[in-house]
Design a protein around this nucleic acid. Structure first.
Length: 306
DNA sequence: AATTGATGCAACCGCCGCAGA
DNA sequence: GTCTGCGGCGGTTGCATCAAT
């Protein structure tokens, strides 16, 4: 027996202002979250220790009169312990610009490269600060961007001094010649992320692993025995410690799984070999080309100890 | 002090893809 | 094969705050 979709279009009562009904006929709250609701959700997430079930269950079990979707959003965008607060650093701004020139409005993919930042946060930042700034500075450049969905903007022009046009065009050509699910798209997933200190680095919780014949972790990345570069899954990288964060939840006892984006640190054991999987190899297209471009950022030290 | 416009941010909406019944 | 629940995503909206007048 399926549960009704309380948040989506199937919920006929979800458009009546500030409340909608759940399957029990009780009103579901909408709008801003109260501190009490935040506390309930946070407490439940801590108590559940990763055994959450679906978000609808989270809402119900936490005693919240919210739909699961709302709980998920609140957790991801506000309550998540690894969130970074405060203004974007210049390095982060540059990286957002760069990634947006590559990915367009794929905010979630951009956010995946900025630990502690959410897609919503980056989207808002782009739509307010950067968009406005670009409009003020790009009036002299008519060249359209091949990837940016907002035609009123000119990311490529903004990227002057950040990336070489030729390299960028080469990369875009590679993009245009591949399907969305192609290796190129996967390769974009391998773009290194900026660390909390503004440099690409290995998460602080990641154990130092000696070269074991299959690969190793360097201080600036991970390299296979043949020099391939590997990067950890995004959800793992997102746990990178941020010195500014005074987390409520002890990272060592908390989960970061596909459901709640937190997985036990213990799952990082054996990291040295688990990144040898086919899914993470990007050698079939010109990774070197891509990385040369990305590494043009002065704050992205991804050269490693090759 | 009151009003108005701009801005930033949190949250919602609608759509899509996936997986299970 | 179809239907439905669910998670995820990008676009959009609504509201609180702030600055200018």
């Amino acid at each position: 027996m399926r549960k009704p979709d309380l948040c989506g279009k199937n919920n006929i009562n979800n458009n009546n202002g500030s409340n909608s009904n759940n399957s029990n006929g009780t009103k579901l709250r909408k709008g801003l979250w109260s501190p009490e609701e935040d506390e309930k959700l946070m407490n439940y997430m801590v108590r559940s220790n990763g055994q959450l079930g679906c978000w609808s269950d989270v809402a119900r079990n936490a005693g919240l009169l919210r739909c699961g979707k709302s709980c998920r959003l609140r957790w991801i965008n506000y309550l998540r312990p690894d969130l970074k607060r405060g203004a974007f650093s210049p390095q982060e701004e540059d990286l957002i610009l760069h990634l947006h020139s590559l990915l367009g409005n794929r905010w979630s993919q951009i956010a995946a490269r900025l630990p502690g930042r959410t897609d919503n946060e980056i989207k808002n930042f782009w739509n307010s600060t950067i968009k406005k700034r670009l409009k003020n500075t790009s009036s002299s450049s008519p060249t359209p961007s091949p990837n940016a969905s907002d035609s009123s903007l000119e990311p490529l022009d903004v990227m002057q001094g950040i990336m070489a046009m030729q390299d960028h065009n080469n990369m875009m050509a590679m993009f245009m010649n591949t399907s969305s699910s192609s290796s190129a798209a996967r390769a974009i997933d391998q773009i290194p992320m900026i660390g909390g200190n503004g440099y690409f680095n290995v998460p602080t919780f990641m154990p130092q692993v000696e070269m074991d014949g299959d690969g190793c972790f360097g201080s600036n990345g991970m390299f296979g025995q043949n020099g391939e570069m590997f990067f950890p899954p995004l959800e793992s990288m997102a746990l990178e410690a941020n010195g500014e964060n005074k987390n409520i939840i002890d990272r060592n006892n908390y989960n970061y799984n596909p459901l709640n984006n937190i997985s036990k640190v213990e799952t990082m054991e054996g990291f040295g070999t688990c990144f040898q999987g086919e899914d993470l190899k990007v050698g079939e297209w010109d990774l070197e080309e891509l990385m040369r471009d990305v590494s043009s950022f002065p704050f992205l030290d991804i050269q490693g100890d090759q």
